[in-house]
């Protein structure tokens, strides 16, 4: 009976996601498409929670839907009204591509259903559980991210840095900012300390419960964005060089941990199990700061407006 009710809930979620996705992909107005995409992201976050992936639900809500949504909305606002956003391929092309994609979907679905007969990946999950005590943390997702597959995570931070460097190299952007109204500004004043607290909490619990550097970093970035939106005078941005260093720090500390393990044991990122917990926290601390800085800077278009007036950038 309970399983049946859950299945109905699942069906509703699935249909909702399909409808929202189709809306986001094909809504006539681009603005509606973006808003539908953000709503889609929120429902997806629910789906992650449903599939027992709370870490991902948090990240999706904060980054996937939240920050990406904010970026998309900002980009949309800067568009001139005349921009033609409804242009698409001719019908015959659309149909041909549709046929091809449908064939691929059927092929993938068939293969996926074959797999569901006998899934093989439980053993690896068991290995993770069995090795967890050597990892220095008790949240298995954090263990995979920062120990078992730490090299992936180092490269992922590097990808974020590459994107930030790319955004910054495109020069100062039009300001995506518009000061909030007084009432919203009051609300923001309440929200910021909450977000910072929540960010710190997520970073700390990441070791044994859902959370971690990425979710925490995203929340801190959101706090910074809100502070900026609220136009709070007491919120002064650090200077150009300091922000730059902050954005590099996460990757740098991670790399230095890698180098010292390489020198110590000859194996990249082999964390000694006594130290692993501490090293992971150290990496996460700096990663959080860098992620927050990078996401915030990216939101500002690489160059906060204040840089142009306060500091003389080589380009200015």
């Amino acid at each position: 009976m309970k399983a049946g009710a859950l299945l109905y809930l699942d069906l509703i979620m699935v249909i909702l996601m399909l409808v929202l996705a189709i809306g986001a992909l094909h809504a006539r107005s681009l603005r509606h498409a973006v808003i539908l995409f953000i709503v889609f992201g929120l429902v997806v976050a629910l789906a992650w929670a449903r599939l027992r992936a709370p870490d991902i639900a948090l990240a999706e809500a904060a980054i996937g839907s939240g920050l990406a949504g904010a970026l998309l909305l900002a980009a949309l606002r800067d568009r001139r009204p005349g921009d033609d956003a409804t242009r698409r391929a001719p019908v015959w092309q659309s149909v041909a591509v549709g046929g091809l994609v449908t064939a691929l979907v059927v092929l993938l679905a068939w293969a996926f259903l074959e797999v569901q007969g006998g899934r093989a990946n439980e053993p690896l999950a068991n290995i993770v559980q069995a090795t967890l005590h050597e990892s220095g943390v008790s949240n298995p997702v954090t263990a995979v991210l920062l120990n078992f597959r730490a090299y992936d995570t180092l490269l992922e931070l590097t990808v974020l840095l590459a994107a930030l460097l790319g955004v910054m190299s495109l020069g100062p952007q039009r300001s995506p900012m518009r000061a909030a109204e007084p009432m919203a500004a009051g609300l923001i004043g309440w929200l910021i300390p909450l977000l910072i607290l929540a960010g710190g909490y997520l970073l700390w619990v990441g070791a044994h419960a859902p959370g971690g550097a990425f979710q925490a970093g995203a929340l801190l970035a959101a706090a910074a964005v809100l502070a900026h939106l609220g136009g709070r005078r007491e919120f002064q941005l650090p200077g150009h060089t300091r922000l730059r260093l902050l954005a590099v720090a996460g990757c740098a500390v991670f790399t230095l941990v890698g180098v010292s393990t390489l020198l110590g044991s000859g194996v990249l990122l082999q964390l000694p199990s006594d130290w692993a917990g501490g090293l992971i926290l150290l990496i996460e601390l700096f990663a959080t700061a860098s992620i927050a800085t990078a996401l915030f800077l990216v939101y500002l278009g690489g160059h906060p407006p204040s840089w142009n007036s306060r500091e003389v950038h080589p380009d200015a």
Partner: peptide, 13 residues
């Protein structure tokens, strides 16, 4: 080959 982090391939990279 080298197993990064010292973890067996599969669990590690």
């Amino acid at each position: 080959h080298q197993a990064l982090g010292g973890w067996d391939p599969g669990l590690g990279i």
